[in-house]
């Protein structure tokens, strides 16, 4: 996965969570499946998407929350 593609994936994931903040909770597994479909034409695998998600978390662009199951959320300061 090129840096450019990785950035596209990261932007897409963070954008989705921002867009639906307060309306829908995205489970990491659902996001991974969704991105796999979205970027299928670019040959991205599930592992690529997971790696992008890991980076998002390491950079604290998103955080994990829990309500019966794990979900992705914006950090509290956002």
């Amino acid at each position: 996965m090129t840096d450019e593609t990785k950035k596209k994936v990261e932007d897409k994931i963070v954008g989705l969570v921002k867009e639906y903040a307060g309306k829908k909770r995205f489970k990491p597994i659902d996001i991974v499946k969704e991105m796999e479909k979205e970027f299928a034409s670019e040959g991205l695998t599930k592992d690529d998407i997971k790696a992008a998600l890991k980076e998002i978390m390491d950079e604290e662009k998103l955080v994990y929350g829990y309500a019966g199951g794990s979900f992705l959320a914006l950090p509290e300061n956002q």
Binding site: D58, E60, Y64, G65, Y66, G68, S70
Partner: peptide, 16 residues
Amino acid sequence: HGGMAGVKSYGAGMVG
């Protein structure tokens, strides 16, 4: 139960 409790970059290990 649940909510936002955790340490940087980990999605596990804390129970809110």
